[in-house]
Nucleic acid binder design. Structure first.
Lengths: 346, 346
DNA sequence: TTGAAAGCGCTAACAC
DNA sequence: GTGTTAGCGCTTTCAA
């Protein structure tokens, strides 16, 4: 165990602790000669600064927490990579908090912010409400959000245009000749669900198609929820020929149901999801979906949040609206002579 | 921001800081009446203890770090869940360190141990060598390992019997009538690779089958590596009818190659992987694999490590060898009249 | 350019 | 059962 402390290094180098601290943190204030002596002492003693003491004194931890709904879902994993790489490059460490889809856990993780274990926190979860997040910020904590846009001066946000995503998808399905298109929403109260529903309705309206409430149901953003929701949908109305699910996980549930019910995809039912999770390229038929630049959202938001925490504000933008891209694959492309799509391999 | 500190609470409750500290940490030492007053004060002031100060003074952080090779791979994600749930139940927090398959990053994360950001660290990565890990422990740090067995008194380990895994797989393939079975290894120097190779050879020997070096190649535990390795294998020797890949990711690479080369699975080539990652159930044909109780390994090891860090040693076992289970699915089961396997849905 | 010394907020002897 | 107080190891004024 490394038991040596700054005073030991100071003694060995025949300087004061202040000087050692300076070469560690603000070495430009120390003469070359002294610096060299101190560095040697550090080396010889294999000294490592105690982060706890340093954090306490400097009132910073150089850590940010990231609360995700479920670490296993690749949508989150990729965002985390973006966050982590950017944070590391700015000398911050990242604490990943896996809420395992439990709101209770998310709330517990908030205490890491409150007890100063982390300097700031990024939420990538639909569970925390805008109100709760705003309350945290008003309390003085640094918070960033990925996946939605919260209208608050001090909350950096990275997100995609959900309305546009939904419109793109529905327009694509209409273009394929579908006239009855179902929509499988996430949690009814999640902002994503709401915005995607809005885009769905707008696209229908633009095409002069009727809006049928029976063609809509709420899942809960995961596979089982998608399965159950699809089954409910069929009870209400079973003549739709296409379905748009608010995320890929729910689309997997629809695949499962289709298999059980011997429904051919895409011949009898076209399916399109959102997120472009890894699985979508491996299932058969491959799932059409919407790719969100997840890594980019994570990186941009992190850069902004850290900048804000340090009061630099050199990035004047608070929000980052990134472009999503519809990826048309076999699940929604019924064509006996399929052309090679330029997006087929993405 | 919560600016109140323990002295403020003490003043408000008309007690000393020591008493406040006691109700916070060892409340059995405080009278009911006093405790109630203190708790009220805490509530009223919305006080949260400063973790940095607490950590510094108590020389504990109540955090453990987990270094994984790649957070996106579901094999790691599930282990993390096991670690996290056990740790949380013992009042520890978990810092996940995603090495993104870079050894350099893993080394950087070791500094979190050295600077006391975490009390202990769990390595779930083939990259760190036994030697490096032992050096850390000899230096006085608390370290646990998942995925292999390091023969050192102070390193708790959770792992499966890799030799048995390989034997089970190869025996299954032999049982299916295969006589030329290829083996796609991971990194040549990873302990997993070595042990699985050993099991592969033993199974062949037991069956009186020849060992053909040309039927072996080294991938690197990921999809692309599996693809490339399979291609090399075919150059050397293309008459094998079955292939055992040291993990599922590499099997995915083989699937890709088979698709390109129009090789039918399992009719022309049977494939079996290891890990039972989520994807294996979604690809077509579903991949036969070996399930390791990942969640259990994470949980058991964490319990032991934390116990050891606190010098309780109430768990006398240092190593946890958990049972793996061969899951036979369509990728290795060529049968025109397939029976419903009891494991088919796992 | 360097050193002395005052804390950061908390825990845990030790005293009562 | 409760209070007093000395640090935990570090950074940062302030003075030299």
């Amino acid at each position: 165990m490394n038991e040596s402390k700054i005073i030991d290094v100071a003694n060995r180098a025949k300087v004061s602790v202040a000087t050692v601290s300076r070469v560690l943190n603000r070495s430009e204030l120390v003469s070359e000669k002294t610096k060299k002596r101190v560095l040697e002492a550090i080396q010889e003693m294999n000294y490592t600064p105690n982060a706890m003491a340093k954090n306490l004194r400097s009132r910073k931890t150089m850590k940010i927490g990231v609360v995700v709904a479920d670490i296993e879902v690749s949508y989150f994993a990729e965002i985390i990579k973006g966050i982590e790489n950017m944070a590391n490059s700015l000398d911050y460490n990242v604490i990943i908090c896996d809420a395992q889809n439990k709101k209770q856990k998310e709330l517990e993780y908030v205490s890491l912010l409150q007890n100063r274990t982390v300097d700031g926190m990024i939420f990538v979860t639909p569970e925390m409400t805008n109100k709760e997040l705003i309350a945290l910020v008003e309390d003085g904590y640094s918070v960033g959000v990925i996946g939605r846009n919260i209208d608050h001066e001090q909350i950096p946000c990275a997100f995609t245009d959900n309305v546009k995503i939904a419109r793109d998808v529905v327009n694509h399905l209409i273009g394929q000749g579908h006239e009855k298109i179902a929509f499988l929403s996430g949690y009814a109260d999640a902002i994503d669900s709401y915005e995607r529903l809005e885009g769905y309705m707008k696209a229908l309206r633009d095409a002069g198609m009727p809006f049928v409430p029976d063609l809509i149901d709420n899942g809960d953003f995961n596979e089982d929820g998608g399965y159950l929701s699809f089954m409910r949908l069929r009870e209400k109305n079973d003549d739709f020929t296409a379905i748009f699910t608010a995320n890929d996980e729910m689309a997997l549930g629809v695949y499962k149901a289709c298999k059980q019910l011997s429904i051919q995809v895409p011949q009898q039912l076209a399916i399109v999801g959102v997120d472009n999770i890894r699985l979508t390229k491996y299932i058969v038929p491959r799932l059409s979906t919407v790719d969100q630049p997840k890594y980019t959202m994570g990186a941009l938001l992190t850069e902004k949040l850290i900048d804000q925490m340090n009061n630099n504000e050199f990035k004047d933008k608070r929000t980052f609206k990134v472009e999503s891209k519809l990826l048309i694959r076999e699940s929604s492309m019924f064509d006996r002579n399929p052309v090679k799509s330029n997006e087929a391999s993405q």
